[in-house]
Simulated scan of single mutants.
Amino acid sequence: MNISARQLAILAGAGSAALLVTALIFQSVGYVPCELCILQRWPHLAAAIIGAVLIFVDVKLLRWAGALAAGLATAFAIYHSGVEYQWWQGPVACTGGIDAMLTMSTQDLMTQLQSAPVTRCDQPQWYFLGLTMAGWNAICSAILTGMWLRSALWRGIRI
């Protein structure tokens, strides 16, 4: 069975769409996304849209754009995983850092506290086989990036 480069790219776009749907399902059952969780969704949305466009038009540049979007999703997920595992610090607004708050006026501090995200980026809500959602997203996104790159670099594969 032959899979064309276009079909592989469409499949990768569908993979990003599946990751988005999964995130929304988790959200609908009560897992509140943090700032970095939301950030990871945007490149997947772009990749899913690019995959959908490829159903109608096959342009190699779109496959490269899909690879870029999936690569960004991978990078964001790795960054978020590092924040969760305390390998590095995340955004102050997302990890509860106090340094920036010390220089704020009382009014700015009250505004920030009232609009602060409910969920912290450095405290994962879910684990499966020792990995958080961000960790699994990093793995899945890396696979999708590979699929996009394969579709952009070669004409097709045989399975």
Score class of each variant (00 low, 15 high):
residue 65 A to Q: 06
residue 18 A to W: 03
residue 55 I to M: 09
residue 90 G to C: 06
residue 14 A to K: 08
residue 150 R to I: 14
residue 73 A to M: 15
residue 17 A to P: 09
residue 61 L to S: 06
residue 150 R to V: 09
residue 23 A to F: 12
residue 29 V to I: 15
residue 51 G to A: 05
residue 6 R to S: 03
residue 105 S to C: 03
residue 121 C to K: 07
residue 74 T to V: 15
residue 38 I to D: 00
residue 4 S to T: 15
residue 23 A to P: 03
residue 60 K to W: 13
residue 115 S to K: 05
residue 68 L to M: 09
residue 103 T to W: 13
residue 26 F to I: 11
residue 41 R to D: 05
residue 127 Y to C: 04
residue 88 W to T: 03
residue 101 M to G: 04
residue 39 L to P: 02
residue 138 A to Q: 01
residue 102 L to P: 03
residue 1 M to H: 10
residue 11 L to G: 03
residue 44 H to E: 02
residue 57 V to P: 07
residue 95 T to P: 04
residue 125 Q to G: 14
residue 40 Q to L: 12
residue 69 A to I: 15
residue 66 G to W: 08
residue 33 P to Q: 06
residue 48 A to W: 08
residue 26 F to D: 00
residue 85 Y to V: 12
residue 4 S to W: 07
residue 96 G to C: 04
residue 95 T to D: 00
residue 38 I to G: 00
residue 120 R to K: 15
residue 131 L to H: 06
residue 132 T to P: 04
residue 36 L to W: 07
residue 52 A to M: 09
residue 43 P to K: 11
residue 145 T to V: 10
residue 4 S to Q: 05
residue 130 G to L: 14
residue 84 E to T: 13
residue 36 L to E: 00
residue 4 S to C: 04
residue 111 T to L: 15
residue 77 A to S: 14
residue 77 A to P: 01
residue 77 A to K: 06
residue 83 V to I: 14
residue 34 C to D: 03
residue 63 R to A: 07
residue 18 A to R: 09
residue 85 Y to P: 03
residue 9 A to L: 12
residue 111 T to P: 07
residue 50 I to S: 10
residue 44 H to A: 09
residue 53 V to Y: 01
residue 16 S to D: 01
residue 113 L to S: 02
residue 87 W to K: 10
residue 45 L to M: 07
residue 47 A to I: 10
residue 136 W to L: 13
residue 97 G to D: 01
residue 79 Y to C: 05
residue 36 L to I: 12
residue 14 A to I: 15
